[in-house]
Nucleic acid binder design. Structure first.
Length: 273
DNA sequence: TTCCAGGACCCTG
DNA sequence: CAGGGTCATGGA
């Protein structure tokens, strides 16, 4: 494990890890601890410096926390009104995280009709049952590790009706019928079409995977909280379909609509869920 | 007990 | 296309 310091001009680690985009980071008195690419990472922030303990290269950490995104420029694009400005002021420095596509896809399959503590538990269960043991931590299971799951192992993870979808997509990735890395090079609509072929992946989960792991910053996942805040603050309480809301958001906020979504989500979401 | 959760699917109208 | 029931699991 190396320790290094990264200067971070516009960044807030706590908001970034608490805003509900990732599910495996844990906080203790010494800061945060997480697992990326089968590798344990410790991170804490002191002022404008991010202090990291990790086997990964500085470049990988920069990449993971999207520290090369020009956040001030992004704010200029999405600062359209008092509501979003209040959210930005409250959570200034919060960045999207560039997650691993496979883990992101499974995580958001787990999110379907579920609460965040339960999602975190399912992902932890999956990692302990199928993942690589990293002495007292567990890596997120690969498609190969998951595809060998027995019925009993899957049952232990308490996935409910999501279990079959997860096993199904693991096998699909093993057969290379779904190649997540290739979706990074596709445009938003084409990549989304591919994701929607997966059982259990609808508009919302697809947009989450596109936004959080495939660099499609225009993706605007619409869930119950986003629907509520958008209808209340922007649509004069008029009902609108998720498709309408998504199209409105991409028009209104532009190419960084996904960043606006994360600020509105954290702004709207009740703290305990 | 009943209701509901960062939805998706399937079936009706 | 829009609306509603159903799907495991667990906490309030």
């Amino acid at each position: 494990m190396k320790t290094y310091q990264i200067p971070v001009p516009t960044f807030d680690l706590d908001h970034t890890l608490r805003c509900g985009q990732v599910f495996r980071w844990r906080e203790n008195k010494d800061g945060w601890i997480g697992i990326v690419d089968n590798s344990v990472i410790k991170a804490k922030q002191e002022g404008d410096v991010l202090i990291v303990e990790s086997d990964l290269a500085t470049e990988d950490i920069m990449n993971y926390f999207r520290l090369n995104d020009d956040l001030d420029d992004i704010y200029k694009h999405i600062s359209k009104d008092d509501v979003i400005n209040e959210a930005i002021a409250r959570y200034w420095g919060m960045r999207l995280i560039r997650q691993e596509p496979w883990e992101c896809l499974i995580s958001y399959l787990c999110s379907i009709n579920n609460r965040i503590p339960q999602i975190e538990r399912m992902i932890q269960n999956l990692s302990m049952v199928f993942g690589t043991n990293l002495n007292s931590f567990y890596g997120f299971p690969s498609p190969e590790q998951l595809s060998k799951a027995t019925h009993d192992q899957l049952k232990k993870c308490k996935l409910g009706f999501r279990g079959n979808w997860i096993l199904d997509v693991a096998r699909k990735v093993c057969r290379e019928e779904l190649q997540l890395e290739k979706l990074k090079n596709m445009d938003y609509q084409s990549a989304k079409r591919e994701l929607l072929k997966v059982n259990g992946v609808g508009d919302k989960v697809a947009d989450c995977v596109l936004l959080y792991s495939l660099d499609k910053l225009e993706a605007f996942p619409v869930d119950v909280h986003i629907r509520r805040v958008v209808q209340r603050e922007y649509l004069r309480n008029e009902r609108a379909s998720d498709t309408k809301i998504r199209e409105w958001a991409e028009r209104y906020f532009g190419k960084y609509a996904g960043y606006a979504q994360q600020y509105l989500f954290y702004y709207e979401r009740p703290k305990e869920m």
